[in-house]
């Protein structure tokens, strides 16, 4: 396989959902409202890396995760796995894709069948994808439990007998049972307590280096994403606003929204307290998108062009991309009096 070819690439993907269709709209003969969940998203996931996807609720990060594993079909554009369009996969090819790209869901209570024991849950995954001949399945289950550090007697128990963190480990074991190349983790730890979150994050980091996994880590917690990711994509209203290396994003964000998001996240250092509100206003409705930049209504650096012309995601050098008309945003300041590096502050 070509080493430079991204394992997953998202080319101009858009996804729309039919929104509420009220009686008034029907009577007036108007079309139903359309929720624009993803708008022309382009992104690449490289083999062996962890790509973090962050954004506030409603930014489309979960829709994107679901498009990656083909739980949603993209309306426009294509998701490619090793260069091939996943919407064209049929039969064995589709089954192979389903095996190699696994998703772990947010809610460990909702994503495990309450009537199946852990060994049945793991055994089903092994059996469906014919990972092992039948006699070897119990041994493999023991191996998997060991891998996610669950006790061996867990095999005979039901999901409700476990705590939230343990259930999330079962979810991870089920995904790993079929020896995937890519793990798409949608809010993997957001339902867990802080101390348990750390356990699951540590486990994921260990497993990734041991099994050479590629991880797409979707989350709203910036501190977690920073900790776990090599690269981070920041989404807002169905669009990618910035793609940057993890350290690049957190030290010098290239988009005003990323900067505001970082400032809004409370700092763990009580000495660094400030009273300035990072970002005023709220997310616009995805039912009627503004014509220009989706962030124009809240951006402190907005100017006329932002309201009429949508900025495209464009390279900023050193693997950085941003969708902003202020191409100099976040570059080292030309002089000390101009800390944002803006030409027109």
């Amino acid at each position: 396989m070509n080493a430079t070819l991204p394992i997953l690439s998202i080319d101009g993907v858009s996804k729309r959902f039919r929104g509420p269709y009220s009686l008034m709209r029907r009577l007036k003969g108007e079309p139903p409202l359309i929720v624009h969940a993803l708008n022309n998203v382009t992104l690449e996931v490289h083999r062996g890396e962890t790509l973090g996807i962050v954004g506030e609720s409603g930014c489309g990060k979960s829709t994107l995760a679901r498009c990656l594993v083909r739980l949603h079909e993209a309306d426009d554009g294509a998701v490619r796995f090793e260069g091939k369009d996943i919407s064209l996969f049929r039969g064995t090819e589709r089954r192979a894709f389903n095996r190699r790209v696994q998703m772990i869901f947010q809610d460990p209570y909702g994503s495990l069948n309450p009537r199946m024991t852990v060994s049945q849950i793991l055994g089903e995954a092994l059996f469906v994808h014919r990972m092992r001949p039948k006699p070897e399945i119990p041994g493999r289950i023991a191996e998997l439990l060991d891998l996610v550090r669950l006790p061996q007697d867990a095999a005979g128990r039901y999901p409700h007998e476990f705590s939230g963190g343990q259930r999330q480990r079962i979810g991870i074991a089920r995904a790993l049972a079929v020896e995937p190349d890519v793990i798409v983790a949608d809010e993997l730890v957001s339902a867990l307590d802080v101390s348990v979150q750390a356990q699951v994050i540590n486990l994921l980091l260990q497993l990734q280096s041991r099994l050479h996994l590629t991880v797409v880590f979707v989350a709203h917690d910036l501190r977690l994403v920073r900790h776990i990711s090599h690269r981070v994509a920041v989404m807002y209203l169905g669009q990618v606003m910035e793609v940057n290396t993890s350290e690049g994003l957190f030290t010098a964000p290239r988009h005003p929204y990323s900067k505001a998001l970082l400032e809004a996240a409370p700092e763990l250092d009580p000495g660094q307290r400030n009273r300035k509100v990072a970002l005023r206003g709220e997310l616009p409705s995805p039912l009627n998108l503004p014509p220009g930049c989706p962030f124009a209504g809240r951006c402190p650096h907005v100017f006329d062009r932002c309201r009429t012309e949508r900025p495209l995601l464009s390279p900023r050098g050193r693997g950085q991309f941003a969708a902003c008309h202020l191409t100099d945003f976040g570059t080292p300041a030309p002089n000390a009096n101009n800390p944002t590096g803006l030409l027109f502050p």
């Binding site: 962890t50 802080v194 101390s195 348990v196 750390a198 356990q199 994050i201 540590n202 980091l205 260990q206 501190r223 977690l224 920073r226 900790h227 776990i228 990711s229 090599h230 993890s246 350290e247 957190f250 763990l268």
Partner: peptide, 13 residues
């Protein structure tokens, strides 16, 4: 809780 400058290291869980 993850802190800055400790990316991809084990957290003290």
């Amino acid at each position: 809780v993850p802190r800055s400058g400790t990316s991809r290291t084990m957290l003290q869980s």
